[in-house]
C-alpha cells in the first residue's frame, strides 16, 4: 500500500481541508441564523403559503406545518445559542486538522468539533459543477436528450480533468448509446425531445 495517496489535483488525500479565513465556528453561527430566519419567515407567512379551506375540519391544513415550524424555530434557536457559546470559548492551540481515516472519524467525530477550521475547498469547482448540471437539466427540455447528454458528458469530463481527446469524444457517445438502449428500448421511457428542430433530430434516435 502506498503510504501517501494523492487526489486528481495532486493534493494529499490524507490531509484535511486547509484552514479558511472565515472560521468553522462562525460559519456554524451563520448556518444557524439562516435556518432560524427561514423557519421564522415561513411561520409568520404560513397563512399565505397554505391555501385551503379553514374551519372545514377539526384541524386546519396548516396545523402540522405550523407545529413543525415551531419545532424548527426552537431547535434552530438552540443550535444558534450553542454555536455562539462554542464560538466564544477559546480554541485549543491546534495548527491544522489532519483528516482522519473515515473509520476513526466516525468513532471519534467529536474531536474534530474542537477545531475552529473552516471546511474550505474549491467553491469555483463546485459552482461550475452545479452550473453544468443545471445547464444539462435546463437544456434537456429545450434541445432534447441526445444533444444535451453529449454536450454535458463531454463538458463534464473535460471539467473534471480528463484531457485525452478520444475519451472526451468517445466516452459520451458510448454512454449515450448505452442510455438510449436501456431507457428507450428496454424501459420504453419517453425521453425529452426538445423543441423545434430538435424534435425532428430526436426522432432519428427514439
Amino acid at each position: 500500500m502506498s503510504e501517501q495517496r494523492t487526489g486528481r489535483d495532486g493534493t494529499d488525500l490524507d490531509a484535511g481541508p486547509p484552514p479558511g479565513r472565515f472560521g468553522r465556528k462562525k460559519q456554524e453561527i451563520v448556518v444557524a441564523a439562516v435556518m432560524l430566519l427561514g423557519f421564522l419567515y415561513l411561520r409568520i407567512r404560513l397563512v399565505e403559503h397554505v391555501r385551503g379551506r379553514r374551519g372545514a375540519a377539526y384541524l386546519d391544513p396548516d396545523f402540522w406545518p405550523g407545529l413543525l415550524l415551531n419545532a424548527g424555530i426552537v431547535l434552530a434557536l438552540v443550535y444558534l445559542v450553542l454555536a455562539v457559546i462554542r464560538a466564544r470559548r477559546p480554541d485549543p492551540d491546534l495548527p491544522a486538522v489532519p483528516r482522519k481515516p473515515v473509520a476513526d472519524a466516525a468513532l471519534a467525530e467529536e474531536e474534530d468539533h474542537h477545531h475552529d477550521v473552516a471546511l474550505s475547498g474549491n467553491p469555483v469547482a463546485l459552482a461550475l459543477g452545479f452550473l453544468l448540471l443545471f445547464g444539462y437539466i435546463w437544456g434537456m427540455t429545450r434541445i432534447g436528450f441526445v444533444p444535451s447528454t453529449l454536450l454535458f458528458s463531454a463538458g463534464f469530463l473535460a471539467f473534471v480533468g480528463e484531457r485525452r481527446w478520444y475519451v472526451i469524444t468517445g466516452f459520451p457517445v458510448v454512454l449515450l448509446g448505452l442510455m438510449l438502449y436501456v431507457f428507450t428500448r428496454l424501459l420504453v421511457v419517453p425521453l425529452p425531445r426538445g423543441r423545434g428542430f430538435f424534435v425532428e433530430l430526436s426522432t432519428y434516435f427514439y
Binding site: L133, F156, V160, G161, L175, M179, V189
Partner: peptide, 16 residues
C-alpha cells in the same frame, strides 16, 4: 476507475 469516468456516468444516470 478514474473519477472522471464514474462521476460522469453517475450524473447522467442520475438525471435520466
Amino acid at each position: 476507475i478514474p473519477f472522471e469516468i464514474f462521476s460522469t456516468m453517475v450524473l447522467v444516470f442520475a438525471v435520466i
